Structures are given as structure tokens and as C-alpha cells.
Simulated scan of single mutants.
Amino acid sequence: MQLSEELARAITSMGRLINDFQGEELSRSDFLVLVRLPLQGGAGEAVRSRDLARAEGLDPSTMSRRLGSLADRGLIAREPDPADGRAHLLTLTQAGCDAVQRERARRVALVTDALAGWAERDRAELARLLSQLTDTLEHRRASQHDGRTAR
């Protein structure tokens, strides 16, 4: 098999593992939204709901329903955008931050358990190579994005 096929297979298997043993608190889609938000009162700028919808590739109305659910559960705070009264700025509440941390720990445990039989040097090498691949892909995406916006 080619490398790209093996990567796709690994990513698919990881997604299935996460979904099969989904946490009780956050759905996969909840988690993907929450990790994009800064902590309320912390470092980082609040995010506009329309920008979040665009980043996730969702229709704004779909994102609005998801955000409403997260706000109802006390995981996010929505404040009116002073620059546009129709829009909201979103941040994580402390409860949202805690939920994200628990979900991250759950996901780490799933991978750690899966790699328990691997030699330490193999785990370290996998981590190094995945980091290198991610850095390369992110750099390539940024370069291509910069090229499109410069046209």
C-alpha cells in the first residue's frame, strides 16, 4: 500500500476508535467546535460564529443550533459582537475548558492503550514522524493559501 493509503487507513481507524468509545459528555462534533475556542477571559480572541461555521465547513444555521446546545449546557459563552450587533463572539467557559481537557485525556488514553505493546523507541519515532508530517502539511497549506489570496 502507498503511504497516503496507510495514513488514510490510520486516520479512519482512529476516528472509528474514538467514535466507538465516545465519551458521555461531548460528541465528536461538540469537541471539534470547542477546541477552536479560547477560554473566556484567557489568551486568544473570541471567535465569531460565522467564522467557526466556515472553518468547520458547516452551514451557519447548523452551527447556530450546535452553539445553542453548547451554550445551554454552559460550555460556551456568547457575547454580542460590538462591531456587528447581529453576530456573537464565542469563548469557552471554565466548564467547557474542563470538558475539553477530559475529552483530550480520554483520547490520549485510547491511543496510549493501543500503543502499549510498542517499544518506547518506536512510539517516540512515530510521534516524531507524525509531528514532522503535520508541520510539512500545515506549511504547504499555508503556502498554497497565501498564493491564492495574493492573486
Rank of each mutant, 00 (worst) to 15 (best):
L89W: 02
S49R: 00
A127K: 14
I18E: 11
R107H: 02
A87R: 01
G15N: 13
R48Y: 13
A114E: 01
F31R: 11
L110M: 12
D122S: 11
L37E: 07
P38G: 00
R148C: 07
E24H: 15
L37V: 04
T149H: 15
Q144P: 02
T91H: 04
A119D: 15
A109S: 05
L90A: 02
V100C: 04
I11C: 12
W118M: 12
E56Y: 15
L32T: 00
F31T: 14
R48A: 13
D135M: 14
S27Y: 00
S69Q: 11
L3W: 00
E79F: 05
A119L: 11
R54H: 04
A105T: 09
D122N: 08
R65F: 05
E5L: 12
G23D: 12
R121Q: 01
L7T: 05
A71M: 11
M1E: 05
Q101S: 11
L126S: 10
G85E: 00
T112D: 10
E24A: 14
T62W: 07
A77T: 12
L130A: 07
Q2P: 13
T12V: 10
L32W: 14
A109M: 01
D146W: 00
D72R: 15
S61V: 15
L137A: 08
A8L: 11
V100H: 04
R102A: 13
G117V: 09
L137Y: 13
L17T: 12
A71E: 05
G42P: 01
A124C: 09
L129F: 07
D135V: 07
L52P: 08
P38L: 01
E125L: 14
L52V: 09
M14H: 13
A116H: 05
G15T: 04
H139R: 15
H88A: 05
V47A: 06
G68F: 02
L126A: 12
Q94A: 12
L126N: 03
Q101G: 07
D59Q: 08
A127R: 15
L39T: 05
E45F: 02
A71D: 03
T112K: 07
D84P: 04
I76M: 04
H145I: 14
D20T: 09
M14L: 11
S143I: 01
H88Q: 03
T93C: 07
W118F: 13
R128N: 02
A55I: 03
S29R: 14
R28A: 07
M14Q: 06
E5M: 10
R78T: 09
T12R: 06
T12E: 08
S61F: 15
D59K: 00
D51W: 02
T134H: 06
D81N: 04
S143Y: 14
R28V: 01
A116T: 14
N19Q: 12
A87S: 14
